[in-house]
Simulated assay, not measured.
Amino acid sequence: MDLLQFLNENYYMLVPVLWVIGIFLKQTPTIPNWAITWILLGVSLVGGAFFFGFTAEAVFNGVIAAGVAVFGHQMVKQTAEAMEGKK
């Protein structure tokens, strides 16, 4: 499924920003793994509302942007782990 087809192109820049924030959060020992997705969702919603206004479309796109960032990271991570397991 291509989630980017549902994401407004103005939000494309938010996905790599969320990815980088997620990497930094993962390296922070005081933040539990389960909280990272919630933090990224919050950052995405606040960022979207700040730049594009607080509308239903902004909320929808914020959720999709966070989903794409988390989903993309997991795809890369799990594919790399699977490829290492085949060696």
Rank of each mutant, 00 (worst) to 15 (best):
A80E: 15
V76G: 00
V15Y: 01
I23C: 05
I31L: 09
T79M: 12
A35P: 11
N61H: 04
A56S: 14
S44F: 07
M13K: 13
F60A: 02
G47V: 01
Y11C: 01
L25Y: 08
L4T: 12
G48D: 15
Q27W: 03
A65I: 02
S44G: 04
M75Q: 13
A80F: 06
K86Y: 13
F54L: 14
N61M: 01
F60M: 03
K86W: 13
V68Y: 10
F50A: 14
W34Y: 12
V43H: 10
A66I: 04
E57L: 03
G62Y: 05
V76M: 08
A65M: 07
K26L: 00
Y11Q: 02
A66K: 05
F51D: 05
I64C: 05
A65K: 02
L45C: 05
L14Q: 14
L4W: 06
L7E: 04
L25C: 11
E84Q: 13
W38V: 04
F24A: 05
F54N: 07
G42K: 09
A80C: 03
I31R: 11
D2L: 09
Y12P: 00
A58S: 15
N61E: 00
E9V: 02
E81W: 07
T30W: 13
F50M: 15
A56F: 07
F54I: 02
A66G: 09
K26Y: 00
Q78C: 07
F51N: 03
Q74G: 10
A82Y: 13
N33L: 05
F6R: 11
G42M: 08
Q74C: 03
N61Y: 02
P16F: 05
G53C: 10
G22W: 03
I31C: 07
A80K: 14
K26H: 04
A65P: 08
F50S: 11
Y11A: 04
I36A: 04
T28R: 02
V59Y: 10
Q27M: 12
G48W: 12
F71H: 12
F24C: 00
M1H: 15
E81M: 07
S44K: 06
A82N: 15
Q5V: 03
G67L: 09
V17W: 05
V70E: 12
E9P: 06
E84H: 10
F50C: 07
F51C: 03
Q27T: 03
V63N: 06
L40W: 09
L40C: 05
A69E: 13
N8G: 09
H73R: 10
G67C: 06
H73M: 06
A66R: 06
K26A: 02
